[in-house]
Structure formats: C-alpha cells, structure tokens
Simulated assay, not measured.
Amino acid sequence: MLFDNLQGVLRVVIMGALAYVALIAILRSSGKRTLAKMNAFDLVVTVALGSTLATILLSKDVALAEGIAALLVLVLLQYAIAAMSVRWRWVAELAKSDARTLLLDGVIDSAACRDERVTEEELRSAVRSAGHGDLDGIAAVVIETDGRFSVIPQGQAGSRSAFPARPEKQ
C-alpha cells in the first residue's frame, strides 16, 4: 500500500516537526555528552532516542506529550548516570567499561585480547587500517570504551601518560 489517506501523512508531518523541535531542544539543553557515544551506555541511549522518535512519528497510539516525556526520561537518566559516574567510581564501573591495552611495544597481550573478545587478526587489521605494516613500530593498541581501536606508533607514544593503567597481577 503506497498511500492510505492524507490525514495519516499530515499527522506524520506535524508530529515529526513537533517531535523534532522538542528533541533538538532537549538535546541542546542536556549538553554535548548526550550524543557523544563515548561508551556502550551512551550508544544505547542514542539508539533508544531514535527508536522513541520513530514511535512518536509512526504510532497513532502515542500522543506527542507522551513521546516528549519519553525522550525527556531517556535524556535525564543519561544525564544523571553520567553525573553520578563522575562522582562515584562504582557507578562509572556499572555504566561503562575501561579502555584496555591489547598490544604494548609490539607484543600482543593474548589474555587481554581473549578477555575483550578480539582476535589477533582484528588487532592486526586495526594496525594496518591506521597505516602501519609492522607491529614492532607500534607502542600500543588500545580498545577504547566505545569499542574503537587506538593505534599509537612508537614515535608518538611520548611519556605514555594517556595509556590505560595496567591491571595489577594477582
């Protein structure tokens, strides 16, 4: 069915415009972090916002006020979790993972790769994608909190103060 009725199309246009304006206002007032995608938690919120917006647009069972309330709840919860994560370490540990070094000074940490479910081929691919052909020239490969790989060549490692802290051996 290509076209049901003009009223349905008009509803989507009006709801879409109003929900869009509301979402932009909410996001602007909540700050840049809301859509930063810094970790899995942030990504889930971003996807949930999109899903909620789609539901507002397409479901006749959801009033605009209800949809805006849902968007507000998601953004406020994300804001609250992010704020609490800064204050309390245990909240940060619940909401996000830490970055982890998978390769250090050209040597692959097989245990770290296994824990993070990264194959050595995926690690080598990340090094190649960063424009390097030799693991020996790499100071570190870090899997970041959002799942991206950071490849740091030896010549750019500096003091290594930005590297993730190595876990204590027990």
Results as ranks from 00 to 15, higher is better:
110 S>D: 14
106 G>N: 07
60 K>N: 15
146 D>Q: 01
30 S>T: 03
2 L>S: 09
162 A>K: 05
170 Q>N: 14
19 A>F: 05
96 K>Y: 13
152 I>A: 08
136 D>H: 14
30 S>L: 11
118 V>G: 01
76 L>T: 11
145 T>W: 00
8 G>Y: 06
56 I>Q: 03
132 H>L: 12
87 R>Y: 08
112 A>H: 07
101 T>P: 05
51 S>N: 12
96 K>P: 06
95 A>Q: 09
53 L>W: 00
153 P>C: 08
165 A>L: 04
149 F>Q: 07
107 V>E: 08
167 P>D: 15
157 A>M: 10
34 T>N: 12
160 R>E: 12
146 D>M: 04
67 G>H: 01
62 V>D: 11
164 P>R: 05
27 L>D: 08
130 A>T: 01
102 L>P: 03
26 I>K: 12
136 D>L: 10
37 K>N: 04
38 M>L: 01
138 I>F: 11
41 F>L: 09
126 A>R: 02
131 G>T: 15
55 T>I: 07
108 I>D: 13
46 T>A: 03
98 D>S: 12
44 V>C: 02
80 A>E: 11
36 A>R: 05
52 T>E: 02
54 A>T: 12
9 V>R: 09
35 L>A: 07
34 T>F: 06
97 S>R: 14
155 G>E: 13
45 V>E: 01
141 V>M: 07
134 D>K: 12
119 T>V: 04
28 R>S: 09
138 I>A: 11
34 T>I: 15
52 T>H: 09
76 L>E: 13
102 L>Q: 00
31 G>I: 04
94 L>S: 13
102 L>W: 02
69 A>F: 15
56 I>P: 03
45 V>C: 02
162 A>R: 13
14 I>S: 15
68 I>H: 01
169 K>D: 09
158 G>W: 05
3 F>W: 04
168 E>L: 15
122 E>F: 00
59 S>C: 12
52 T>G: 05
65 A>N: 14
151 V>H: 07
162 A>I: 06
57 L>R: 00
165 A>G: 14
76 L>K: 06
147 G>E: 02
162 A>Q: 08
134 D>P: 09
124 R>T: 14
55 T>R: 02
42 D>A: 02
158 G>H: 09
138 I>K: 11
